[in-house]
Nucleic acid binder design. Structure first.
Lengths: 143, 143
DNA sequence: GTGTTTGCAAAGTGTTTGCAATTTA
DNA sequence: TAAATTGCAAACACTTTGCAAACAC
């Protein structure tokens, strides 16, 4: 089969992009490649932009922001709130939690099931629970 | 005892302010009064500023920000991260968790003990757990 | 008086938006 | 070609900072 692969890489992403009514433009496909080619990742708009340009993808920061939000709405990404001054996006959209180190800005996944919540009280009147976010804040050991 | 109370309101706050080496200035005392006079509260710099001015306290927004951070460092407040674009401060500094409604911006406390975490995995190498934040995101019921 | 704090306005950060030029279907 | 997308620069919201005037001790 060597040499004759007709594999369209990231076809699942291509599919998802189309399903939501987004056109598979050069920028979106390139950003999707960077985002999804290497397992689960946590990134910010700025980091993704830097990375994209390092990979010779010409894309503006505004488009990176737009794309991140479009992907999030499409269910390809999940936004995680760990820091009041920066938006992080997670390529793992399934149910799980996070370790977050403020000093380094690093986020690490905690697989689902490792954190168990019990006895959650009823939400405020007139509201329903949308989801539960757990952030385990860590600091580097200084000695 | 009526009429002879020598109670110094917020003396505990006054004390704490002094202990940390902050001078009990008019602005700091006034903001502390607004913050601590009515049970547990969740507020933002903007909200506190508006409230302060409504109460005829002349204070600049910059000073509100500075004061919130000084109080936080002093352990009088706790900063809570629920939204990537706004900083919230909680007058309840003890261990507890939160309901957060993005639509209304409202935060409600979940008393400690109502949420139980179990089987927390070990933190990333070289780090120790500082604290665990749980945010139960809710949305208003639309029908 | 001396050092701290305040207020203002300016600067800074991260993010969003308006719009003409470009690209996609 | 018609509609969607891009990039730029300007606008934004929130927050921090520099510095002279005001204040606390």
């Amino acid at each position: 089969m060597r040499g004759m692969e007709t594999v369209r890489p990231y076809s699942h992403v291509l599919e998802k992009i189309c399903v939501v009514g987004l056109r598979p433009t050069r920028q979106r496909l390139a950003l999707a490649k960077v985002l999804f080619e290497s397992g689960d990742r946590h990134t910010t708009a700025e980091k993704l932009h830097t990375e994209a340009r390092a990979a010779h993808i010409r894309v503006s920061l505004a488009t990176v922001y737009n794309t991140l939000h479009q992907f999030t709405n499409a269910g390809l990404l999940r936004e995680i709130v760990v820091d009041a001054s920066r938006s992080y996006f997670d390529t793992n959209t399934s149910s799980h939690q996070h370790f977050y180190c403020e000093e380094t800005g690093e986020i690490e996944d905690i697989p689902d099931g490792l954190v168990t919540l019990s006895d959650l009280p009823p939400p405020p009147k007139g509201t329903t629970i949308e989801r539960v976010d757990v952030v385990v804040r860590v600091k580097t050991i200084s000695d």
